[in-house]
Simulated assay, not measured.
Amino acid sequence: MMKAWVKGGCAAALVALASGCVQQPVAKYNWGDYESAMYSYYQTPADSHAFAEKLLAAIQASESANKKVPPGMYAEYGELLFEAGDNANAATYFEKEKATWPESSVLMTNMIRLASTNPTKKP
């Protein structure tokens, strides 16, 4: 009887010990304050500047940590620049999205064309 209890206790201790050694998964992307910034932007769309600043901060944090920028973030920042009339910089971020996420190639090619055909005027 004592042997079964010892074996069961040892097995439970080993499981507990092993589970304590499990590492938490590392986030694949740095989203920064994206979720709350997006929510705020949807509540007050006129404040696109604050949203753009938070996107740029998340992009820069990812790039400085040598992490892949999350899907769509370059494009979204580029869209905000495009809407503000900064078409030359918008095209740069559309290019980055296209290079980082090749599946966005068709859309980004069209956005680059739009931004490049009229580099100084608002759409």
Rank of each mutant, 00 (worst) to 15 (best):
P45W: 05
A99E: 13
N66P: 06
E76H: 02
V15A: 15
L114D: 05
T109K: 08
S105H: 03
S116H: 06
S105G: 08
N87P: 00
F51D: 00
G85E: 09
A18Y: 13
S19Y: 14
L107M: 13
E103A: 11
K121I: 13
Q24R: 15
Y42D: 00
E95G: 10
Y93T: 07
N30Q: 13
A88L: 05
F94L: 07
T44A: 13
A61C: 05
S62M: 07
W5M: 13
T92N: 12
P71F: 09
T44M: 06
P25F: 05
N89M: 07
L114E: 04
V106M: 14
V106W: 12
P71M: 13
A12C: 11
A57S: 11
V69K: 01
V6F: 15
S19T: 13
P119R: 09
S48Y: 04
S62H: 03
A75P: 00
A99C: 13
N118D: 15
A16N: 09
V22H: 09
L81S: 04
H49F: 05
G32D: 07
I59S: 01
E63F: 13
R113G: 05
T109I: 02
A11Q: 11
C21I: 11
A46V: 11
K7V: 15
Y77E: 02
E103M: 12
F94W: 04
V106S: 06
M111C: 03
A50Y: 05
A46W: 11
T44Y: 11
S64I: 02
H49A: 03
K3Y: 15
A65D: 08
G32R: 05
L80V: 06
A37W: 02
M108N: 08
E79N: 02
A18G: 12
A27V: 06
T92E: 14
K3D: 10
G85S: 05
N110F: 15
A57C: 06
K122C: 11
V22S: 07
E79A: 02
N87K: 04
L81T: 02
W5R: 07
M73C: 04
I112V: 09
I112D: 00
G72M: 00
T100I: 05
E35F: 12
A115E: 01
E76W: 01
I59G: 00
V22E: 12
C21E: 14
Y41K: 00
G78R: 02
G72Q: 02
P119I: 14
Q60S: 09
K96H: 14
D86N: 07
G8K: 15
T44I: 12
V106N: 04
G32N: 06
K67G: 08
M73L: 09
K98L: 10
V69Y: 03
A57F: 06
L114P: 01
S48W: 05
F94T: 02
P123W: 02
W101R: 04
Y41L: 02
A11E: 12
S19E: 00
K96E: 13
A46N: 15
V26L: 05
A58F: 00
K68E: 14
V26D: 14
G9A: 11
S105M: 12
Q24L: 06
T92H: 14
C10Y: 10
V69F: 04
A65L: 08
K68I: 12
T120S: 10
W5C: 14
E63W: 14
S19Q: 03
G20H: 01
E95V: 07
A13L: 15
A91P: 03
N118L: 08
W101C: 00
N89I: 01
N30F: 06
S19L: 13
